[in-house]
Design a protein around this nucleic acid. Sequence first.
DNA 1: CTGTCCCCTGCAACCGGTTACATAGCTCAC
DNA 2: GTGAGCTATGTAACCGGTTGCAGGGGACAG
Lengths: 344, 344
Amino acid sequence: MTIPPKRAPTITEVASLAGVSRATVSRTFSRPELLHADTTERVRAAAAQLGYVPNQVARALSTGRAGNIALVVPDIANPFFPPLIRAAQARADSEGYAVFLGDSDERPEREDILLTKIAPQVDGFILASPRLDESRIRAHAARRPLVLINRDIDGLARVLMDVSSGIAQAVRHLADLGHRHIAYVSGPPASWANQERQSAAIAAAREFGMTLIAIAASRPTYQGGQAAATELAQTDVTATIAFDDLVAQGIMAGLAAQGLRVPDEMSVIGFDDVLASTTYPPLTTVAAHCAEAGGQAVDLLTAILQGGSTPMDRILIPTELVVRATTTQPRASAKRRSQQPTFS
Amino acid sequence: MTIPPKRAPTITEVASLAGVSRATVSRTFSRPELLHADTTERVRAAAAQLGYVPNQVARALSTGRAGNIALVVPDIANPFFPPLIRAAQARADSEGYAVFLGDSDERPEREDILLTKIAPQVDGFILASPRLDESRIRAHAARRPLVLINRDIDGLARVLMDVSSGIAQAVRHLADLGHRHIAYVSGPPASWANQERQSAAIAAAREFGMTLIAIAASRPTYQGGQAAATELAQTDVTATIAFDDLVAQGIMAGLAAQGLRVPDEMSVIGFDDVLASTTYPPLTTVAAHCAEAGGQAVDLLTAILQGGSTPMDRILIPTELVVRATTTQPRASAKRRSQQPTFS
DNA sequence: CTGTCCCCTGCAACCGGTTACATAGCTCAC
DNA sequence: GTGAGCTATGTAACCGGTTGCAGGGGACAG
């Protein structure tokens, strides 16, 4: 049996205990500089005695400011997001905002519903890697300040990973090691991040005169990577760049199952650097600083909420290669050249 | 489709468009069975035309029900929590609740502040692995319905892992393989989960006539596990049970750095089964079904919120051993017996 | 034809704050 | 001594819903 939750004291009770009007109590907590010091003191004492805390819901209704922000991600369980969420939450907290978390389960329509449902309760949104189409995102942005992470829509505030620098470093690293034939194992085709990474890889491979084949991981998961490893084993590529660390790890496991050793028989590079330090062997990867992206997104959002003006509405977070233990020189191999489409 | 206006339409606008009173619009969305079908239809049409969505904040103020629940965890980045959060969020969503997420950064006082700050905006709390002391938890529970995960406080609703069965299976598995000297690498001493696991391990070891030493991982992290591996290497134990998978993975990396091979020279068992399938070699571990815990906690909370009565206020989730590739028979070893405290 | 009952719907008072505006009292310069 | 200019506080109208209560009107029985 539950204890009937005791009702929190209201502003009216504090007012009568302190012998002032409700307005004075309200001002004590919102604009104390308007009041005589003695008065605020007396009100504070009364409030403390009753255990009064201003009701955020009532405050939100009358001011229109909720003191909350919403963070929507496609899949909390994807290791890319927890550090991002964590940083965002910490930042929001120190700015005085509480955080609504939404998981869209990778489904655009869930994202849409989530947004409309929690909109009145928040002052602004952060959409991380949204799967929603551009027009709907713009529609939501028209209602509430909104910051995107990992999605580039003109005119909207956004925090982006500067993918190309990191990918270029990765490809150059492989070129320096002597690799000539490499693969990119891609993520969700609809994902902006995937398109960015893939085209950056293609461009870099062309620059270094390497052959690059693209292999689709059915899903951006460990399992997807495992499946891709089977395809990889049938090609003559000696190095692979994966859509993200999770796929890279799946590839490593898949290769191991095929009896191929990493890095001796196949070099593997991940992306994000979210679990690189916890794989064995430690994964060479491109660090995307996702935690920083989360923090920056909150900063940007609160700046918009408070200032109104947006000094910089497009923040680029640099990425860079972190070399660990999954890349080395290619070994001569007699594998058959694949029929995969090749680029340059 | 109409261009969404900056300000969300209110009940008043819908009422005048539909030619009814505000009360009727309200009832259309809260208690439609009181209205004539034609009326609700007309109101719904007007609402749709304006893009009206009931304002949850206003609703919360007048009903006292916020339609939100809060989920507080000590560290989102700990892989134990994302599946739990994900399941909880999905469940809450389908029950019509939105979710506040709080990360206490493992600090009890942050937990306390978070709870008091969010309290008026939510109908109830879920505290996962709270670090807060019992009296404070009880204080919060007196104000709002509250469900605990991984913490056993008498009289409060809670979802617990039935640790002992899984640990017993793990120890038996090691005994069957022929291990005689094993170690438990512990987590945070203040953690209920750690105490449970450790005492279960001690009890099981005693039952099977094995020697068990306890080694403290300074922190329940990958790094903590690595450090513990150094200590492990100096003992004559042939198998290790880790506080959780993260620590287990750190141990594996640490052992590799010491030149010890898993499982040949040291068997390793984790706990939680949150990243077991993504390590290499795949980790033998105790599955804790943390996602189910999250879902059950939400079910329990919503039952309390709706029913008022609590049919079952203590849910036990069974755990069981999942054998993968990090356990095998012990190899004779000449390592020196350690001076660690031993239990039976 | 009238009375009763029930089904819908409207009226108006909340919920707990915020805030524009009014005002009381006081200081100070002229 | 009086009006201007403050400062500190009160009054009351919101914010956008919900809901107890009242009442109009149709159905139906007598």
